[in-house]
Nucleic acid binder design. Structure first.
Lengths: 334, 334
DNA sequence: TTGTATGCGTTATCAT
DNA sequence: ATGATAACGCATACAA
């Protein structure tokens, strides 16, 4: 069952075409020189036999690798599907093949997965964030392949980093709140230990508020991954403890959506009674009855640019794509 | 730069351990027999050299392949991220490596991608749906690998199919509307030509209504992929043409969300004035002010079960995982 | 322009 | 229990 195609090799094609193996190889990769006559003959044989080149053998024999490893923390967050989209779309044009794995936000798992994909001798491995275990860094350091870290530029990349600054995003969010005249600001977040980027936003946010003389009034950090229900619950908790808050920063738009829905259900006027701002500018938040204020992040673009830099064999660098504040209707401007 | 690790091979390990290459291979794969003494010696050498086995070479030399190809239509729809999650999670335990590609709902592209992944001689290729081009079917037929078609069981699978019946889902939705006493029912859908599964739901839905003496009152089929804004627009269009409709079936929850938000914004009472039902039971629709009626589909489970069947080398079969109606608060029960 | 021969880093088959 | 050695299917000098 496993041999119908497996049995057809370059040698078979060469034989039925009446040429040498290397000639077939040249024709197929359009590399080197050969006559038009042999070319058509070879193609005819390929067609007749239904030959499909074995890239495993081809990769072993040649120097470079067409494989690109992609390791993401999760897929339930659309953010990572977006970068994945951007990467694969661009990679396809370069005839590269993506090998893929998910860490579930687990650093140990990430290390194991990096080891696993490295066994395939990829030309590059792309992963999310700049924080990785010592083992991961060591393996990647000696692997001799490109290393591309995505969605964060706050730190020192191993090779190439493509993304934006979460610290700057946190500050920008704080600035928006300060500009809006909010004084009793709370934060509702998720799982800060595993998602180091949300932690960076949170820290920069509170620090900026502090500098403006507005210490964070309250916060609720859920010990779970971000979700709508956790956002809902987090806001409910905060409101119970601190009914007088006038604005909330959510760790991302999933959380913010939960908070917004809570307000809708509880009849809390937004933004008059309570302002809401999230992070990522998800599509859905642009279509809620009131568009939710957020920070628009270039996710697909980050994937594309990363893949492009790799394909172009660009030098080590940090590429900051920036972000932009999306005002929405859940925060007053002033 | 590309040689630091590449230069360390099985032979190097064998040399520094003072044993033969095959012995190292046996120890590493824990296969065959060897003494404890040599075992520790080999592992020490592996550790010292930082040796990482080359799976490309290993795969070429051995009979089976640890590669599993996964081809999905899109990543912007969370549905496919979910199956992908289910698959990779299960595959990881089986030491398999996923290679990955996205078709963008394009049959031609799918065919090209199938050809591309087949060149890696995967042990299985997983793709979405039962409708594929003749070329795709032919290639897969002679590839000698397992073929697993996901998220649909309405048709004849090439090998294994894991999913649920979209026709049955369409009928169940119609039944819910009939039971609710709705008489002027409309449909708002997306891109029916590319998404054949939504077409199956739509057809079964209208047919069931017809059988109950309730011909579809109106419909609006957007020529684009599903999205919140298209759902919004579609409902607006229908309402303008047919202000007297009392219920709408949306092709999926993204579309339904758009419709629901339109109602919220326009002050249309749901479900008193207009009932809404979607498809997929996305998390977010469970947390809107009124949970949106929908059909819960086993997406992650489909991925898991598919991977499990593959790992267990199960015989060709169709596995119908079923679905369930989620009532929500956007449709009256009667 | 074309064919031959060698090697890529393993696994697997044999002996021993 | 262990070690040579022949595949695996292709790319790539090198020769012709």
């Amino acid at each position: 069952m496993n041999d119908k195609t497996s049995l057809i090799t370059l040698a078979d094609v060469a034989k039925t075409a009446g040429v040498g193996e290397s000639t077939v190889s040249r024709v197929l990769r359009n590399h080197g020189s050969f006559s038009d006559k042999t070319r058509t003959r070879v193609m005819a044989a390929v067609e007749a036999l239904g030959y499909v080149p074995n890239r495993i053998a081809g990769t072993l024999a040649s120097t470079g690798s067409p494989l690109v490893a992609i390791i993401v923390p999760s897929l339930s967050n659309i953010v990572f599907s977006d970068v994945l989209s951007g990467i694969t779309r661009t990679l396809e044009a370069g005839q590269r093949q993506a090998v893929f794995a998910v860490t579930d936000y687990d650093a140990e798992r990430e290390e194991a997965l990096v080891a696993a994909v490295l066994a395939w001798r990829p030309a590059a491995v792309m992963l999310v964030g700049l924080e990785h275990s010592a083992g991961t860094r060591r393996m990647l350091g000696v692997a001799g392949c490109r290393v591309i870290e995505l969605l964060d530029v706050d730190g020192t990349p191993m090779d190439i980093a493509v993304g934006f600054s979460h610290r700057a995003a946190g500050r920008a969010t704080a600035d928006a709140m300060i500009a809006g005249g909010y004084r009793r600001v709370a934060y509702v977040g998720h799982d800060i230990r595993r998602d180091t980027r949300s932690a960076k936003r949170f820290n920069a946010f509170t620090q900026r508020l502090q500098e403006a003389g507005i210490p964070l009034h309250d916060h609720d950090i859920r010990p779970s991954p971000s979700s709508i229900s956790e956002g809902k619950q987090g806001l409910a908790n905060v409101l119970e403890r601190s009914p007088d808050i006038d604005a909330v920063y959510f760790s991302n738009d999933d959380m913010a959506l939960g908070g917004y829905f809570h307000c809708l259900a509880a009849g809390i006027a937004v933004p008059e009674r309570l302002a809401i701002i999230g992070f990522n500018a998800l599509d859905i938040c642009r279509h809620t009855p009131q568009p939710i204020a957020s920070i628009r992040t270039p996710r697909i673009e980050a994937g594309q640019r990363a893949a492009e830099l790799f394909l172009a064999d660009a030098p080590a660098q940090t590429l900051d794509l920036g972000f932009s504040l999306v005002e929405g209707k859940t925060i007053r401007r002033e």
